[in-house]
């Protein structure tokens, strides 16, 4: 739990919405981020860096496959497993 009381999911979505530049990522957690061009390779790395800073943990590009991070739901699940919710 962050000091602000927001959940890991909310904090992840805030960052994702900023990088994908659409609120649609909150409305549809199963949105295919790559298919809809909301993330590309550089965007994915940007997201990893931003999440690393937000949660104070290392999110390492060499450990994540594209398919592991294809939707908002998958990214949230990953961050919850890492941040211990």
């Amino acid at each position: 739990m962050g000091a602000t009381g927001t959940s890991t999911a909310d904090r992840t979505l805030n960052i994702l919405a900023g990088i994908a530049r659409t609120e649609e990522v909150r409305r549809n957690l199963d949105l295919d981020l790559f298919k809809f061009h909301l993330l590309d390779s550089l965007g994915m790395v940007q997201l990893m860096v931003a999440l690393s800073e937000e949660f104070g943990i290392e999110v390492s590009p060499s450990e994540i496959g594209r398919e592991d991070w294809a939707t908002p739901r998958k990214i949230i699940a990953y961050m919850e497993s890492r941040a211990g919710v």
Binding site: S41, V45, S62, R66
Partner: peptide, 27 residues
């Protein structure tokens, strides 16, 4: 598109001279 695969290949390549855009190095 697959960072995991990318780093494995870079590590195995024995590169001596890197030619790229700065964006790719940043990635």
């Amino acid at each position: 598109a697959n960072p995991r695969q990318l780093y494995q290949k870079l590590a195995a390549a024995q590169l001596t001279i890197w030619v790229s855009t700065p964006s790719f190095a940043r990635l």
